[in-house]
């Protein structure tokens, strides 16, 4: 499980995370919603230590992420991440994109890595695009490629940072379907999202972020039908 305790983070003078505490259990799907700039992406980066924090603690399966003795590269294998910007590696084909980390990080053999890559690409519906370069893939396909790339490390957790928000509307569906599929298979996921439909249908819990704090954390039916806080109500009214 992921345990976040009283995390504070500053970017210079900007207090971005103001004491975040959160638990995500095995098999749970947590959706994080909130206004732009409220610190949602930053929180994800703090879970796999892509950003330093100033106080508090993060534990993944009992391992202290910010302990100096913790091997981050080791830790990150277990935390797949998909970013808002499609950042497939442009100089590698789809299958090479997915193979790279299993080969170089997990030290799998070429054929083994390729096997994993093909399996994951088929999993996300890109079985027929193995040898395409990203430039020959649509945004939605690139985003699914990114998901396959993360899954190839066989992580226990997946972190999605607005995986659909830079996609054309007609491409959002295919990526959300892939994410739904993962949730059904029992993957533990934290999804920062602006897709309220997805948050409502798929998640076990929804966290509403407001200016660096978690303003409200409850099951989707409650937060969407009966929001407790004024800010949540306003936000939901605006996004609908």
């Amino acid at each position: 499980m992921i345990e976040i305790r009283d995390v504070h983070k500053w970017f210079g003078k900007l207090h971005v995370l103001k004491g975040i505490s959160l638990d995500v259990h095995k098999g749970e799907v947590l959706s994080v919603i909130g206004a732009s700039g409220s610190g949602k992406s930053t929180l994800l980066y703090c879970i796999n230590r892509l950003e330093p924090i100033q106080s508090g603690s993060v534990r993944v399966d009992g391992v202290d992420v910010y302990d100096r003795k913790t091997n981050v590269n080791h830790l990150r294998r277990n935390l797949g991440m998909v970013f808002q910007q499609w950042n497939s590696f442009p100089h590698l084909t789809a299958v090479q994109n997915v193979m790279l980390a299993p080969r170089r990080v997990l030290k799998k053999s070429r054929s083994e890595a390729r096997e994993i890559a093909v399996r994951q690409l088929e999993h996300v519906g890109l079985g027929d695009k193995l040898n395409n370069y990203p430039s020959a893939l649509s945004g939605g396909q690139q985003q699914r490629l990114a998901i396959a790339r993360a899954l190839a490390m066989e992580p226990s957790y997946m972190l999605f940072d607005e995986a659909t928000s830079s996609l054309d509307p007609e491409l959002v569906g295919e990526v959300l379907d892939t994410m739904r599929l993962l949730a059904e298979e029992g993957m533990t996921m934290i999804c920062v999202t602006h897709e309220m439909g997805f948050a409502r249908d798929v998640s076990d819990k929804v966290a509403f972020f407001h200016e660096g704090t978690i303003e409200e954390l409850s099951p989707p039916q409650e937060i969407f039908n009966n929001p407790q806080s004024e800010h949540t109500r306003k936000f939901l009214a605006n996004v609908r």
Binding site: L75, R76, L79, M81, L100, V105, A146
Partner: peptide, 23 residues
């Protein structure tokens, strides 16, 4: 080369040297 490329590689557990060499 956008910094997001480095981030993506690091998030896969690649070290800084490996990230430079491969990405």
């Amino acid at each position: 080369v956008p910094h997001t490329q480095v981030r993506a590689a690091r998030s896969l557990g690649m070290g800084i040297v490996r990230t430079y060499v491969s990405i």
